[in-house]
Amino acid sequence: MIVLAAKRLVAMLLIMLVVSFILFSLFEADKMAVAGKVLGPYSSIEQREIWLSQNGYDEPFLSRYTQWVGGALHGDFGDSLQYKVPVSELLADRLKNTGILALIFFLIMIPLSLTLGVLAGMKEGSWLDRIISIFSVLTTSIPEFVTATFLTGLFVYTWQLLPGTSSMTGGFSWQEMILPVMVLVIYDFGYVTRMTRASMAEVMTSQYIRTAILKGLPYKRVIMRHALRNALIAPFTVIVLQLNWLLSGLVVVEVFFAYKGFGSLLVDAALFGDIYVIEACVMVAVFIAVFSQFISDIGYTLLNPRIRFS
């Protein structure tokens, strides 16, 4: 168990290392291009070379890379080209906003999809199951920004109930949170619901559930004690891995509603060519993804006695 965790941790660090190297080579191997990004397209070659030597770019690539990693470990990713402030400050603020959005989203999505999934999977083929299943295919099929378009059309333009942007310029506003959270939940709950349903349905047809029923146990006990525990193992991993998936969704939703979060920062940076911000954002995103994978693996092992004790 501990060995497994240690192995996973090493693999995780290794991936982070490789990713950082790829990233650094992609964006900073070509020094001239970096200087061009920093000083603008109309800067002369001489200006660029002066800037490069002033900022330590004369050193060989590998030592620049190690310095960059060292800086990154201390949270120092340089200054944003676009906003002229340290990337770390910018990032901390944006991550906080995204964190709030994600938290509210999870608080709604998890109970909703687990309940629906279990209800649907309990009696496979029942009308409740059909309705839930079809509804979740429909909602997952429609990409976030299409859902967002329709919801904006209705709530903002037609009924004029909610604000169409969530930039929170006048401080935190619950009203501005509603649409982004709604879009995320609608897009995402279906997937987890379907996973839960499939897992529950499989458990319900398993032989040990048959044993439990034919032991004469009350239905409630069969579901609560025998089925749920086994049925929720798979959704657990899915939900944790959702973090990775959610990051993609967040990018789109934040851009759509001009929410000042991590995702919109990344897209702005990509459009502007703000390489230091891109590097920082990607490292953070990959860290979240890899870390959630780690948690999900460990959690799966802990939940599953068959693996835990072997």
Binding site: A11, I15, L247, V251, L266, I278, A285
Partner: peptide, 22 residues
């Protein structure tokens, strides 16, 4: 598998953004 894991650790859209940005 290791190569695959590296690319799987990027959220989909973010990987696209990096590639488009480069």
């Amino acid at each position: 598998s290791f190569i695959a894991n590296i690319f799987l650790s990027f959220p989909f859209i973010i990987l696209c953004i990096i590639i488009v940005a480069t």
